[in-house]
Every structure is written in C-alpha cells, then in structure tokens.
Design a binder for these strands. Structure first.
Lengths: 250, 250
DNA sequence: CGTTATTTGTGCGTATGTATT
DNA sequence: AAATACATACGCACAAATAAC
C-alpha cells in the first residue's frame, strides 16, 4: 500500500517496481521460482516491455533480483543480497519482519539539549521514546528515539507508541514516512562500542557496563530536515551488523 | 578450464559508463561543475541519447552522480555518497590516503583450520599476514589477513609485506585487485564487539580484554572465489564505523 | 547434434512531460 | 516566453543465452 501522503503521482515503472519489490521481500518467489517474464508483466500491467525493463533495472541495482538471459528473473537469495540486511533505509523500515518492538518509555515531550542540538533545533524541547526489540521473545536491542516537536506531534495519535509495554511490529521510521510531508531519504549512522548504561542493562537483562554495539542513526527527509535521532544498543552475543558490499557492474 | 575469455566486446553504454565513472572518481568534476549533457555525450561518443541515459542510470544507482532535471548531472559529493557498491571498498583501497600500514607479522604460510574453512579451501594451508594501521603515527587498528595459497603466492614478491616493521601506504585489497585474474567484486562484512586479544592489545598499546570494535571482511572475486579474509580490531576511542545510507529511487 | 522457441540484453527512434535557467 | 536538460513511455530490430525437442 502507498502511504497516506497526498499521493504524488508515481511513474508506471516505479509502481511496477514497488509491486515487484514487495513481492520479492514478501518471499513470494522462493529459490528457483521464476518471476513473470517481461512480456507477461507488460501485458498484465498494460505497459511496454521497455517500462518493465526500467523497473527491473532498479531492482537489479538494489540487488533484489538476478536476471539471466534465456532463463528469466529470480529473487536474489537472502544471503547473497548485498547491503540488504540493514544497509538501506528500506531495510530499517521492514525490520519488523523478524522482530517485534516493545515500548518501555512511551512517547513524551522532554528537554534534551544534546538531542536538540544533533537534530539542529532552535529550542531544547524534543519528543522522546524508548523501546526494546525482541527476536523470539528475547530482547536483543534497546533504542532511544528523539524527534523534533513538530515531528513528534504527528505520532501523538499512534497507539503502538502510547502505552508502556505495548508490543507491535511497527518501526518509527515507517510510521514517520507515512506521516511526514516529505519522505525520509537519508540516514547517517555511526557504529561503535559502548558500555551498557544502567537503564539499558536492565531492559536487556545484562550486566551494567557490559560492552555493547552502539549504533547512532540520524535520519533526514528529502528536503534536508532532520527527522529522527535514534541511539541503539545491541547485545553482541545476539547481534552483529552485517553488510554485503558490491562493486559496480564490471 | 577454457582459460582466457575472448574478451567479448563491451556494450556501448558500459564503455561510456566506465569512462564517466573514471572521470568522476578522478575528481574531474569538482563541486558544482556540470558533467556533459546527454546530447553532448551522445554526439561525442556517437551513440543515441538513450544509450547515454542507460549509462547514467548505472552511475546514479551507484550513487556516483546526481541528476537534476533542467540543471544537469553532477558528481555526488564524497561525503554524501552513500555506501553502495564498492564505494566502501574503494574507500578501503584508498584508505592509505589518511593512514599508513605497518607490518607486524610478515606474509608467511601457515596451517589454520578456521581460516581455511571460511575461505572454503580444500586443504588447511593458508597464507597469513598481520599489520597495524596508523593515523598520525598513532596505531588505531590491528588486522590479520588470511589468503588462499594461490592468492598468497601472488603477493610473495611484494616488498611492502615482507619485512616486519615495514611501513607503507598499500592495502592488501588494492594489491590483490591488481594481481588477481578476476577482480574483487564483493565483500561481506560483519561488525561486532570483541575483547582485545593479547597480541592485539600489545600492538595497539591498550589493556588486554578491552572491548574493541571487530570487523570481519570476506572478499570474493567476480567468479565467486573467496580471495581474502581480514579480521580487524579497532580502538573505539579513535575510530567509529560510519555509513551514509540513501533510499532507493522512490 | 542442430533447430526452434523463449527470455533477456543492447541500441536506437520518436513523442511528450517537467524542471530549471 | 523560450531554450535547455533530464524524465517517462512506447515502439522496433536484432543479438545472445538458455532450454526443449
């Protein structure tokens, strides 16, 4: 489904690419199963073969599909996808496929000079929120999120973020992308090691001061506004950050 | 084996994309300088405008250039290039811009079951090498490299890797890329936290067991062969892993 | 073994729309 | 308003790889 944004008109090849992307990410083409051919897609979508090809070019560039002349188009195997695990903004949005989030500190207004500064705000007021992420009911990650006030206001009415203990499969970035006037297009992240703060240790059932993987992410919208600051701590025993890098065509 | 391929003619748009890529990476289009227009390139390369567009599509997907309707095509600024294809490994190859490497354990043959297994080798014999990386004469990273024997042999004659204490500005991946018959096209990396092993602690002048950022990288060539396994430990005080993510075309 | 049908890859032409200068 | 430059979309022809016969 497209978001609730004023539905800016999307080109035919992007619509098609979106559909195909959703199908591939939704595991609808398991190993060895061929995607529809260019001719088939052109027919069912009432577009030219060139338009279908244009859509596939994006999916190939994203590493989601592989195409073989004479054979067809296939979903890339999960472990051969480069930069698809947690490497793109889309992946951060679809994080909820394997994991659930549980609110530990509901969305509220707060004064935080550091966060406000990193979000490049005039005032020191921000909205903040904290939650754990669970995999198979086991917490492996704690995240604190800070939002500019005007961004936070747009999440006021989201029930998934309102109650302590609430469990859901949403992502903050996913929620924002549907509600902000300008889509989130960039994230800058920094990965380092940090000792577990007291509150995080409690939530993750680990010793305070235990070394954790710390990932800071600062998200920006297409028009350059900072939209979200997230600081996550991961239990290294249960999580490692994986990226597959690829080199350009030849 | 059929040996050397008859080097089939590269398609026009790839030739063009290669030229443009080299120009952009070679800093030939500084900030604000427009690349040639589609019409100009079509004229000088004697191809159609569609072929020029096809070449640019790859460069855009690689994040190397930005295109603005009505204005033109521009090289993406280095710090706004999102980590996509090999941006990172070319960053790794040009790591030597800011840093130097100092050999602590020269290239030699060794038996290592774990490394051989991760390199998918038949036998347990590998070549190995260890070095530090220095920034402003301060060590901030220790790396151990394992290579398949036939790959290691190709580095036998490299003086920069032969003597303990040797300081140089090379990178192993850069050396390999020049010497291997098939180029290195993939890297899979995993980032986690690890306590400093004794030998690493000595080299980095830190306490043993100090939590470090550990990055494993497994490089593969275009024909799918594993070419190098590198395990690096970074001092978190002096290094954090930064990535800029961008969203696919929406 | 070659032949044929299928499927993707390359290249170009045209037309029209949109954004910027 | 006009010119410039990129974006989208469709059409066609032929090449190359693959699979089935």
């Amino acid at each position: 489904m497209s978001g609730s944004r004023p539905s800016r008109r999307r080109s035919a090849y992007r619509e098609l690419a979106d559909d195909l992307r959703a199908d591939v990410l939704g595991q609808r083409y398991p190993e060895g199963v061929r995607l529809p051919t260019e001719a088939e897609l052109a027919r069912t979508y009432r577009v030219s073969r060139q338009t279908v090809r244009r859509a596939f070019q994006d999916l190939v560039a994203e590493g989601l599909v592989q195409r073989v002349p004479g054979r067809g188009t296939f979903a890339a195997q999960r472990d051969s996808r480069y930069l698809r695990q947690f490497g793109s903004v889309e992946d951060l949005m679809s994080l909820s496929v394997d994991t659930k989030m549980q609110v530990s500190s509901p969305l509220r207004r707060q004064i935080d000079v550091d966060a406000a500064s990193r979000l490049q705000l005039e005032s020191d007021a921000v909205h903040t929120l904290a939650f754990r992420r669970l995999h198979d009911e086991v917490p492996f990650c704690h995240t604190t999120v800070w939002l500019p006030p005007e961004v936070g206001e747009r999440l006021r009415s989201v029930p998934e973020l309102a109650a302590p203990g609430a469990v859901s499969t949403v992502t903050v970035i996913g929620l924002l992308d549907e509600r902000l006037p300008s889509p989130i297009t960039d994230a800058e992240q920094s990965i380092t090691v940090a000792a577990a703060p007291e509150t995080v240790a409690v939530e993750l059932h680990c010793e305070p001061e235990l070394p954790l993987l710390r990932i800071d992410r600062l998200y920006s919208t297409a028009d350059g506004q900072r939209a979200e600051l997230a600081i996550s701590h991961f239990l290294p025993e249960q999580y490692s950050y994986r990226v597959r890098l690829r080199r350009g065509p030849r």
